[in-house]
Structure formats: C-alpha cells, structure tokens
Amino acid sequence: MHYHEYSDLIKNNLEWAQEKLEQDSSYFEKLAKGQRPPFLFIGCSDSRMPLNSFTKTEPGELFIHRNVANQVSLTDMNLLAVLEYAVESLEVQHIVVCGHYCCGGVEAAYRGTATGVVENWVNPIRELYIKNRQEIDALPTDKLRLNKLAELNVVAQVKNICNTSVMHRAFKSERYPQVHGWVLDIESGHIKDLELPLNNWHEMGIMP
C-alpha cells in the first residue's frame, strides 16, 4: 500500500489528466457535456472500496453514494436525494448495493462494540444479527459469521431500497431499475453477486 503526502494527490491528478488527454484529446470536453450513468452504486465508505478500480469503470459510468456499512435508511435525506435523482432524472438502469467482507461497521454491530453516533448508525445491523442469531451462530468460525452478516446486511438494504417512496413511484410507472446486491471479497478482489428473494418480495407486495 502506498502512503502519499497531500501534495502527491495534486501531482498525481495532473499526471492522470495528461495521460487521459494523450489517449483522447477531447476526453474532458466530452465528460463535461453531462452524465448518463447506467448504474447507481450504494457502497461502504471503507477506503479499500475503490469502486472504479474493482469494476474497471470510467468517470461518468457510476453514480455513487457511500456511507458506513452501506446502509439504506428511509430517513436519510442524503441517500433519498441521491436515489431520487438517479432514478427520476438520470434514469439509471441498475441499482447496486455493495457491501464487503472485513467490514468494520458490520463487525462492530456483531460484537456490540460500536459507540457514539456509529452505534446508532449500525444498530439496524445489530438488530439483523439478533434476528438471525441462530443461523449465524451455527457457523463454525467468527469469519464465516461476519461474512454471513455482511451478506444479510446487503440483502436487507436492497429490500429497504425497494421500500422507498422513490421506488414505489418507479414501480407504478413500470419503468424502474433492476436491483442487485453485491459483496466484495477484499481478500480476493472478487465480487459476489448475491441471490435476492425477489419472488418473496413480489408476493409481499414490496415490488412488482
């Protein structure tokens, strides 16, 4: 891992911009014309989650919201504003909630060690653990238990997305994005595309 001085960030930016211009002299001119990203990506704030690196995407391809432990709170105006703009103005085709293994927020919720504002923030994950404690505790190692909780957390947040007023409006219009749940395995760099209980959510009236 490379630790940079602050000045290195500015220097690296100039080098990156020059490299882009050498590849395509009109790169920034085209970028400045506007955005039409096909994906809304809701991820964790963890510094090991460089979304463009893991997905090999370029500027303009991902509309992004990130917070601690990739939570979708129905009272979070920041997230709801991002979601509304992505769905109704940008007309994204896919919404991805992406968690990751080795997540500090998930571990703090699992162990009950979070304090202060973070304790409040990850409390839904703590409740998720308590609700599924029998299934999670039956796994043989802490690592597997934490991985399972990270996966359950992602599925719960995708369900929360479907329960927003933004998505309810989209469902009624019959023009709505597909939803996906991912977990990034930091140890391998691979993304696990989780199976979502879409049929169950349909039967429950959560989504069409």
Rank of each mutant, 00 (worst) to 15 (best):
R145D: 00
V118C: 06
S73H: 12
C103K: 00
K192Y: 11
Q18I: 10
S25N: 14
D137N: 13
L128P: 00
R169F: 01
Y110A: 04
N199Q: 15
D142H: 09
E22P: 07
G205F: 01
M49S: 01
E119C: 06
V97Q: 03
R36K: 15
V166P: 08
R133P: 06
S173I: 02
V118D: 01
K33V: 09
L21Y: 12
H94I: 13
W121D: 00
F28D: 09
S188G: 10
E151H: 06
Y176E: 02
D8P: 08
L51G: 14
V72L: 10
I136Q: 03
E174R: 15
V97G: 02
H180R: 12
F28H: 08
T57V: 09
L90A: 04
I161V: 15
G34H: 07
L74N: 14
L128T: 01
H190E: 15
C44I: 05
E19H: 11
W201G: 10
D46K: 09
E203T: 14
V155S: 04
L51D: 11
Q23P: 03
V72K: 02
T57D: 08
D137K: 14
G205H: 07
C98Y: 02
H2C: 10
N120I: 06
G60C: 10
C162K: 05
H2S: 13
I186Q: 13
V117Q: 14
E107F: 01
I130N: 12
I191S: 04
H2D: 14
R48P: 08
A86P: 13
S7F: 06
A86Y: 03
D8K: 13
V118N: 02
P124N: 04
M1R: 13
V154Y: 00
E29K: 15
E195K: 15
G34D: 07
Y101C: 07
R111C: 08
F54G: 05
N13L: 06
M49Q: 07
D185H: 12
H4I: 07
H202R: 15
A108W: 02
D46Y: 08
N160G: 10
P37C: 04
G104Y: 00
Q18P: 10
H202F: 12
V87A: 05
Q134M: 11
Y110N: 02
C98E: 00
T141R: 09
V87T: 08
N67P: 10
N147S: 05
L62W: 03
Q18W: 09
H94W: 04
L149S: 00
A86S: 15
L51C: 11
Y3V: 15
G181C: 08
E187K: 15
E58P: 06
W16E: 03
